[in-house]
Design a protein around this nucleic acid. Sequence first.
DNA 1: GCTTGACCTCAACTTAGGTTGAGATTGCAC
DNA 2: GTGCAATCTCAACCTAAGTTGAGGTCAAGC
Lengths: 149, 149
Amino acid sequence: MTRLKPSDLIPIGEIARRTGLSVSAIRFYEDKRLIEPVRSGGNQRRFLRSDIRRLSFILIAQRLGLSLTEIEAELAKLPQGRTPTAQDWQAISAAIRARLDERIAELTRTRERLDGCIGCGCLSLTHCAIWNPQDQLAAEGAGARKILA
Amino acid sequence: MTRLKPSDLIPIGEIARRTGLSVSAIRFYEDKRLIEPVRSGGNQRRFLRSDIRRLSFILIAQRLGLSLTEIEAELAKLPQGRTPTAQDWQAISAAIRARLDERIAELTRTRERLDGCIGCGCLSLTHCAIWNPQDQLAAEGAGARKILA
DNA sequence: GCTTGACCTCAACTTAGGTTGAGATTGCAC
DNA sequence: GTGCAATCTCAACCTAAGTTGAGGTCAAGC
């Protein structure tokens, strides 16, 4: 067991400075169980340097379009829920790439339909090519609708 | 002036059936000033057939990725805030196409960066090609972050 | 004239990803 | 041992795009 030197225990403010995240966002991620800092005697959060890497992963994955829930799922796939290494990152990024491909294809199909539609001006839900593609979105419960965007 | 026959005044339930929208969504759109139905003697909403066209426009534009606020802006550009005609639709859809192009380009750039990055596994915010593109999102006020998605 | 279904308003709730503020503690320097 | 910045918790608020429910009214058929 490597013994932790106090100097390896980083307070939240410094983590915020080093990741560019706000303190409140970091606390929010802990709430969502994306990170689990240890606590000082006085109940203050103390982070390891590997937590910076973990937060970086969150930021990058978010940037690629994953929700925090999806990110949690990716992180949970790792044995012992450990912080992703270069190897893990390869597997995860391949999965992410597939999702990205899908989105691009979706948008491209929409653009093609729009091109076929410019000038028709029908605006009829029974005839419009944009409105009528097979891939209708299913409604799912309350709250904001998911839009093709 | 064309005189309105009572049979031209459509109650909200029928509008809902004919557009596929829920009654509550239609009322919500009125709240947001996207449609302005007239009222019956007993204060019930009465719609014109042209409102179906207007609602269709909203649905289609939403599908193309516009927010309700953006849709309101597009509708407001039309003289007298009228319901879009085939001609109007050409102008609007050209504008929408530009936005769509932009989004596709953005996602494609992200994919390229990801391809360059698979295998590097750096996960460092100071070096990562995905994290560091010029087109950083600016934070804008409270609430949900806008994600590149 | 009564019942029933469609309609009305208004307020509260939903998800996602956080921010903001109040009031109380901690921890480090002097 | 004191002062001040950083930290803590918890609750409330924000946007988007609606939904849900309570309590009340309208309109049409019998």
